[in-house]
């Protein structure tokens, strides 16, 4: 079976603002990521990494060029299509963004509820399994306020991966963590993603985690360079 690329980005330009204040932030982006590939995108702040990530994650609508995610063209897509497309992805943010009123288990099962196809009991069972995989089986009913930073980020990973997404998008998942928990979090992400065969695009400044990548891409001033001198 031939592996279709999970993400194909062709000639994407992106602008913020309008009129005289319009500013181009992405220039002629071309990127192809195969299914199951782990790609790390790095580069200085303000280079447009996060913007590209939000485009690929259908959080923003692409303005020009072509953006195919899992075979679906998302350039100029409607809001509804975008919302639908988001459900195929798992997101891990720099801040964990867990819901403060929900326990770890309830937070994780929110990743399944969005699909609306599973009964509550089943969702909770799957969420518990997932939390076990990230090593939090004894913290199922803790509220986020009762968890450490690393534990919260692991809950967030469980939430992102519980629905077995085809693509996982992560933005600085280790930025708020110390070296040990940062490493743990990335390892868990890596192992689970490999088991589930999902594609990972990870934006980071953290040099300590570059080794998990199959490929590293570099962005500067809104342009991608495939063979950056900075990272070799």
């Amino acid at each position: 079976m031939t592996q279709n690329p999970a993400i194909i980005v062709q000639q994407v330009d992106h602008y913020f603002g309008s009129g005289q204040l319009q500013k181009q932030v992405l220039f002629d982006i071309n990127l192809q990521i195969e299914s199951g590939e782990i790609v790390i995108m790095t580069g200085p702040s303000g280079s447009g990494k996060t913007t590209l990530l939000t485009l690929i994650g259908s959080l923003r609508s692409a303005q020009s060029g072509s953006l195919k995610i899992l075979g679906q063209e998302l350039c100029q897509a409607s809001r509804d299509t975008l919302t639908q497309a988001r459900r195929n992805n798992g997101y891990i943010f720099q801040a964990h963004n867990l819901h403060g009123s929900l326990t770890a288990l309830e937070n994780v099962q929110m990743g399944l509820e969005v699909h609306g196809s599973m009964l509550k009991a089943e969702r909770h069972e799957r969420a518990a399994e997932m939390l076990k995989k990230v090593g939090l089986e004894d913290r199922l009913h803790y509220l986020p306020s009762g968890l450490s930073g690393g534990q919260k980020q692991r809950v967030a990973i469980a939430r992102a991966l519980v629905s077995h997404p085809k693509i996982v998008l992560a933005d600085e998942p280790t930025a708020a963590l110390d070296k040990k928990s940062g490493r743990d979090v990335v390892d868990i992400m890596h192992d689970l993603a490999k088991q589930q065969g999902c594609t990972i695009l990870l934006v980071t400044h953290d040099n300590r985690i570059l080794d998990i990548a199959d490929r590293i891409i570099y962005m500067e001033d809104g342009r991608l360079s495939k063979q950056p001198e900075a990272v070799s």
Partner: peptide, 15 residues
């Protein structure tokens, strides 16, 4: 006080 959480839900695909 829940804006960030709601935005996260939207990012996850909630309408």
């Amino acid at each position: 006080s829940h804006l960030a959480e709601y935005a996260t839900f939207k990012a996850m695909g909630y309408r």
